[in-house]
Amino acid sequence: MHISEGILSVPVLASGALLATAGIAIGVRKMPVEATPKTAMLSAVFFVASLIHIPFGPSNVHLILNGLAGILLGWTIFPALVVALFLQAVLFQFGGVTVLGVNTLIMSLPGVVVYYLFRFSCGCTRKRKTLFAMGIVLGALAVCLSGALLTVVLALGGKPFLSVAGAIVVAHIPVMIADGLVTGAALVFVLKVRPGLLWQSLSVNGL
């Protein structure tokens, strides 16, 4: 879901960079020092997960896990993902430095949305089944929202909206399923081994 260099126009790139910078600023402000290891770990998880590719039809998709990162990090997902995306661009030529802002926005904003949905729907539930189900739904939703944002951005870049939207939705169905399952399993695992990690992000983000 990385947009490559040379596809988007300068105004779209500039707007994306501006919005991403605002998100990063909010994220850094809301990130206490104690949450740094967690942020680094989820940034590393995102960095590695994006390298796991699933061939699908004529295209190729990869795990994203922005839903999991969003639920556990809240607004801090912005600095976590910008670092991972920057390193992916530099080390593997995924995306690019000029589209870093847009890519950060596409991946991170759905994470923030999912974070609030998780907060308001799950509260502080400790039921594993509920958490697993919410993980599946929100993990898939984050990918879906990222796809929607990607479509909008590509449409702003001059691509035909409907055909791009159809292709992206179809291509990302397996990713939604995989991301949802991984997110659900990860949330149950976190609840088992360190439940404080789940609720820490809620209190950190002022909820």
Binding site: A40, S43, F47, A84, L91, F92, Q93
Partner: peptide, 20 residues
């Protein structure tokens, strides 16, 4: 492009280095 294995190790090390 850097070989993937080295890229992954370098990337993870850099992420923890940057946040640390």
């Amino acid at each position: 492009t850097m070989p993937r294995r080295y890229g992954v190790i370098t990337g993870i090390a850099l992420i923890f280095g940057i946040f640390g």
